[in-house]
Design a protein around this nucleic acid. Structure first.
Lengths: 182, 182
DNA sequence: AGCATGCCTGACCGATCGGTCAGGTGCTGA
DNA sequence: TCAGCACCTGACCGATCGGTCAGGCATGCT
């Protein structure tokens, strides 16, 4: 199919985002993506070195923001401040990158095992510590993980409701659920 | 391999549970399971009609308890009672069937789409309504989903810590996180 | 005109998947 | 002794996966 302007690269990216978000990374084949774009599978692999490269490019913006959040948390001196920054920051991130979170549905833990994503795992560990407030208390860490995972899943589920309906509700539940830092 | 007592059926079941829990349903091949048991893939399919049949048998006890919980919630007259029963009941269920939850990691939403699991989807909808207390309030539903998904993921993650450390912490976070029914 | 380059494709590759099948083996009861 | 049955297996099947490759087809520069 001859195209006036070769915008195929971007088309593949958005088609992949849509498909990954609804069927998951493993559950989506390059054939699926190619079919949705209206090109051949070979074309997808002409524009992207591999399926994983496609995922990486798709996740890049979200990861960049996550790294930024990690840095902002590290700046805080008091535990209570770190907890607040982590909570609000993660809610913002999750709401904003709902689609990216949805495409990792369930495969998140598995993908984190791969060597390429080690630093993401470290960041999420620090995020849980910050949310827990007192990481030495197991119950605080448990509450933090419930909040973290719950927000992620909820954002992936409520993918269509407006941001300003989702965000306040999430901020409220975060504030209630976490153990306060005394 | 000749076996004195053919306990292969049970061995396959436990091996499958272990593998599914660590690699996920889709991420585990019949070959993997056969390898762990020390038999051939054909033997696995001799004992179980299909891979899906294996999953179904593995999930049966957890599903039975879930159905029971659903019935107990329906018995409650007051919203506050339904909320309490749902919260405590789901925590108990999640802690008890951590392994089963872990093996659905991320594929839960996807598996629920299949016609065979429609009633499970209906039950989880009612569970969210009960947890929300006032299902008409979007913020209450959001809080309920955060709690539900967060607990599930947390139980799958903390698969090795003792029950009586996990359960109280979860019950506490549930009580804090949900919107009270006034 | 001729050549290089960007974009795209069909055909093909090896690997792996879930599942089938004919047949082998060893125990058991008649 | 032998038929029958439960248990198990290797070989094989079609489908699908991610990925490779040689070549076709425009377009634009020299």
């Amino acid at each position: 199919m001859a195209r006036a302007v070769p915008e195929t690269h971007a088309e593949i990216l958005t088609a992949a985002a849509r498909r990954f978000a609804s069927t998951g990374y493993k559950g989506t084949s390059l054939q699926d993506i190619a079919g949705e774009v209206g090109c051949s599978k070979a074309t997808v692999l002409y524009h992207f070195a591999s399926k994983e490269a496609l995922l990486t490019e798709l996740m890049a913006p979200a990861i960049a923001v996550l790294v930024g959040l990690d840095a902002r948390i590290a700046e805080q001196q008091r535990g209570a401040d770190a907890q607040r920054v982590a909570g609000e920051g993660f809610v913002d991130l999750a709401v904003r990158f709902r689609r990216e979170i949805a495409l990792l549905r369930g495969e998140f833990t598995e993908l984190l095992q791969q060597p390429a994503f080690v630093h993401i795992r470290q960041i999420s560990d620090r995020l849980i510590d910050a949310l827990a407030g007192r990481p030495d208390r197991p119950s605080a860490r448990i509450a933090a993980l419930v909040v973290l995972a719950g927000i992620a899943e909820t954002c992936a589920e409520f993918i269509d409701i407006p941001d300003d309906e989702l965000r306040p509700a999430l901020l409220a539940v975060v504030q209630r659920a976490l153990e306060p830092v005394t």
